[in-house]
Write a protein that binds this DNA or RNA. Structure first.
Lengths: 121, 121
DNA sequence: TTTACATATGATCATTTGTTCATATGTTCA
DNA sequence: TGAACATATGAACAAATGATCATATGTAAA
């Protein structure tokens, strides 16, 4: 590797431990997986959605119940439920005029709990 | 409760199960906690940051190494490391000109793993 | 103390995201 | 069928976010 190349590459550490860097490179997940992972965490990255999930943890519920419990507009909740449904964290069941939403994934409680443990430290 | 009130409140379910709704209300975490929780998940809601964390999972590393491993600008990485440091997920150690970053929290691996399990289903 | 390098940071810009408003769809009951 | 209600949705807007660029800070060696 010429001296010009090494300048372009950046700090000296790269050259000293180039082999280590190469090994680490292999351990990084594919870009597709990383995007999916980020998208997954994005779902929990909004307090309204977290509230909805907490509410549904207790019992299935209709849209306007959730809206009331969370002090949010029916529209806002409906939009977020759509997001949650697309992410398959939530499922819907129609009963006459009302639509009941419930969790469609048993791990949600664990994920929220683990997050909670973290911020409580 | 008058008929006018009930109309304002929304769907009929509210009235039928008002007691249940009240109980659920008690189980929702405080708003402060919800915001903190959302902020916590926000950290993992970006693929660049996840990449950085994966890299640091293997070994401590300097900024430009991370930049090279992630195919990102030194500046972009530095900005994100700042975020991660403020969230106390990462700590820095200076050695001469270079600054070595490393994970400051042992749970990060678990959190990423749990997320990964999820998207692999 | 000047030079070179590693990192940090402020400003800017484009993109994404969440809410609101108005309105559409779907369902029940008179 | 039409009125009333529950939910869904598209458009618009404001706020948040992440990358880039230029430049500043900090450190070591000549």
């Amino acid at each position: 590797m010429s001296k010009e190349d090494s300048r372009e590459l950046g700090c000296e550490f790269i050259h000293v431990h180039e082999d280590i860097v190469d090994k680490v490179k292999e351990k990084i997940p594919d870009d597709d997986n990383l995007y999916d992972l980020a998208d997954f965490f994005k779902i929990f990255a909004d307090s309204t959605r977290i509230k909805i999930l907490y509410v549904l943890l207790c019992s299935e519920m209709c849209v306007c119940d959730i809206a009331q419990l969370t002090n949010m507009t029916q529209s806002a909740i409906s939009h977020q439920l759509r997001t949650l449904k697309q992410s398959q964290l939530v499922k819907a069941r129609r009963e006459g005029k009302t639509v009941f939403y419930s969790l469609s994934d048993g791990h949600i409680k664990n994920i929220l709990s683990q997050g909670f443990e973290h911020i409580s430290e």
